[in-house]
Design a binder for these strands. Structure first.
Lengths: 219, 219, 219, 219
DNA sequence: GATGAATGAGCCTTCATTCAT
DNA sequence: GATGAATGAAGGCTCATTCAT
């Protein structure tokens, strides 16, 4: 359910909204602008217009454009983490199921809308030379990667595959990022227009290839 | 051999350089600034300073900042294509060798320096809403993808793997992009610091998983 | 005794303060900010923070920032006048004593704190082009100057000094202003750090020089 | 002769003016605006308009508004110093003549136009809390004050006046500042409109009072 | 070709003022 | 009376672009 950045923007401004609502509204508006115009072209005026508010209020709530963008990335990262943690919580105990759940969660279109994907990519592009952005992501990423690693090691041990688990982890993790890229940019990522479902099928085909005894090939 | 963007920047300006040299010099300077400051923060003045020239001359040679950036991306794409085309030309006739050659070529550190990778990522991040950038990449990418697809189909047919070739192509292509991301941003892409060699090993482990009869596992 | 601007600022806001208290509190806060940040950098938010109140209430009580500042200057001028008028009221009948009392009253540290001096100087600096400020001061100043002139003429007549009384008045009046400047800015006014006592001694040395028969040299 | 800040403003902009001319022109324009609108109300746009140039060029030459204002004060201080140093150079050897020359030099209307006086006062008003401004003035002031002190001590010794020389110095120095204030603000300084000639007469009357044997009373 | 002063559009940010609560 | 979110008008500053030299 959309509790995070899903505040629909464009509504008329209400005076005295309860605390936090304005921030969420402005963060959602920023994501929308980020997806539409990219990072470099985004202006505070765009965000304000998107939210149906004035430019002054953006600074009032976030102090600066930089702080707003950092808050947006933080919110995206928090929502991302809370999604995969939740999915893992609802998954069974079998490592194979858990790994599949974790990897496919990235392509749940209910949460990761094209807009949010585009916002992510925009941040990736600007992360170089902006240690702030890298730091915001790194903590969460490390946690998720550790889960993937645990599960891959469990599967490798159970299935006696002979893979170097580190490389498999690296491959599955990078594959996910690459698929997001392909999904978001539909062309820049070397591929034609693909859907989230295609990405999930691709993830599965990789799992089948790496761990055939745990994921019996469907084809 | 085409050294493309290899013109070292920062050298003192030479008067009366033959046409084309200045352009290459400025493109190399732009790549350097892109890697250091990212797309959004790049200014014409930065590029000029990096090249040891004046801001006016940048506009003189490229008409506008947008045109400069388009020229940079075009040059990167041309160099990229010429590299894999060349590698494929030097490879043998066996599909397995050709596929490996093609995929590993992306991580030849002689050509794809960290600086250039960073520049690529910067463009990816800004590609949304800038059809110009997508168009520049798409033509070349489609060509490379067609080669990968041919080779994968050949391997699938030869090895009777039962994979859906389309998914494998998608996986291998996206994996490459994800690895570039990991390589360039060392953390943002869900991963710790990795080397180009790690990326190549990871590619190989995927090839071994998808096509075990063609790439006998090394572990 | 009228303590004027002596309401200490920074205290927690009291609800339902009787009218006039809030105004005095805000005026005192403004003086404090004026002394700390100067005229140009003063903001309503600063004043409100200094008073422990909100920005809205400042406008509520004074209608506008300009009106607040005019009220502050008016209050300073009123307090200034009431001080020298009171001092003169307590002085004897002899012109020499009365002149000395009047001139030294400007340096009574009990009333003219460094904070208030700084606020005065800030207004002086901004008085050009702001006729409002000049008007507020002129009326009171003229009155005080008339007293000085009366007394100087009396002394000149009594002592047969041969001075042009107008020039002596001008000198004594300007000297007072110059000493305030030196006192307030401790360096900008051509002088090192000086105390109010030094200023009073300097005033006395001028009186001794101009009217030696009335103020027998102490040195 | 007016070499300092005397570049007349308002002239049409010439391309490629020799270096330093634009800076002087902009400093002169700033002085004019400072005199007309005061420190707080001065904007970069005002300065540019006064100089007949664009706002951008002000930043181009001075980096920031603060740096421009510091440059203006520095220029005023340098011109001030060079004026009294020059006057002293042209004066005779007698301390009495030298002191008179030094003190009256402050009121040479050829150099210290009403505009410049107003600019000085504006800086004095803002000097509190701006250590930059105080520092710029202090060095020069200390030097001038040392000269006054030397001369006063010489006169006191020669004339056996019995004054405390320190107080006389303080009085003469502060009197000068106070007279500038009176001159510049014509009312705020407790006085009606006065001329530079009045100020010089007032200075002379103080010298006559302090050192009657050196400056025989004219009245 | 090359330079760099100059312009002007547009952005971020500040801040006095308003007003619903 | 009092608060503080919200607005809107500037203002300082950046930067792509122009152009005289």
């Amino acid at each position: 359910m959309d509790q995070g950045l899903g505040v629909s923007s464009g509504r008329p401004a209400l005076r005295k909204a309860e605390p936090g609502v304005r921030r969420r509204q402005l963060i959602a508006a920023t994501v929308a602008v980020l997806a539409r115009k990219g990072y470099a072209a985004l202006t505070i005026a765009d965000v304000a217009r998107q939210a149906g508010l004035s430019a002054g209020i953006v600074i009032f709530h976030f102090s600066s454009k930089d702080a707003l963008l950092a808050a947006v990335l933080t919110a995206l990262a928090a929502e991302y983490r809370s999604h995969w943690v939740g999915a893992l919580g609802r998954a069974g105990a079998a490592p194979a199921e858990r790994l599949k759940t974790l990897l496919l969660a990235d392509f749940d279109t209910h949460v990761f809308t094209p807009e949010k994907l585009a916002a992510w990519i925009a941040f990736w592009g600007e992360a170089q030379g902006r240690p702030v952005y890298e730091q915001i992501c790194t903590a969460h990423d490390a946690e998720r990667r550790a889960r993937i690693e645990e599960l891959c090691r469990a599967l490798c041990a159970e299935g006696a595959y002979g893979h170097a688990p580190g490389l498999v982890v690296h491959a599955l993790d990078s594959l996910g990022d690459g698929l997001w890229l392909a999904l978001a940019s539909g062309g820049t990522g070397h591929l034609g227009r693909v859907s989230a479902g295609d990405a999930q099928k691709t993830i599965m085909s990789a799992l089948e290839a790496f761990f055939p005894r745990h994921y019996p090939p469907s084809g």
